[in-house]
């Protein structure tokens, strides 16, 4: 599989959603930016820089059981 095709979502334990590969990104206002290679998205709801992870989950959040 060549790199052009890679598009992977990795769920990090008690941490963010790590997306890597080649993808476009549309924010909640509908602004589209193309050709991303890697982004970390907040999964705990606490980031001050949503939708991106800012490390706020650390020692503050665990995945609900």
């Amino acid at each position: 599989m060549n790199d052009e095709q890679t598009f992977e979502i990795h769920i990090i334990e008690n941490g963010p959603t790590h997306i890597k590969g080649k993808f476009s990104f549309k924010d909640s206002a509908g602004n589209l930016s193309a050709e991303h290679n890697e982004l970390f998205f907040c999964r705990c709801g606490r980031s001050k820089n949503k939708p991106f992870c800012d490390g706020s989950h650390k020692n503050q959040w665990q995945t609900p059981e």
């Binding site: 598009f7 476009s24 549309k26 924010d27 998205f41």
Partner: peptide, 21 residues
């Protein structure tokens, strides 16, 4: 097309040819 979209006050919606781990 591979796309990651943020829904306001909601989830991350991902479309395309991806794998989730």
């Amino acid at each position: 097309e591979n796309e990651v979209r943020v829904m306001r006050d909601g989830p991350l919606v991902i479309k395309g040819n991806f794998k989730v781990y």
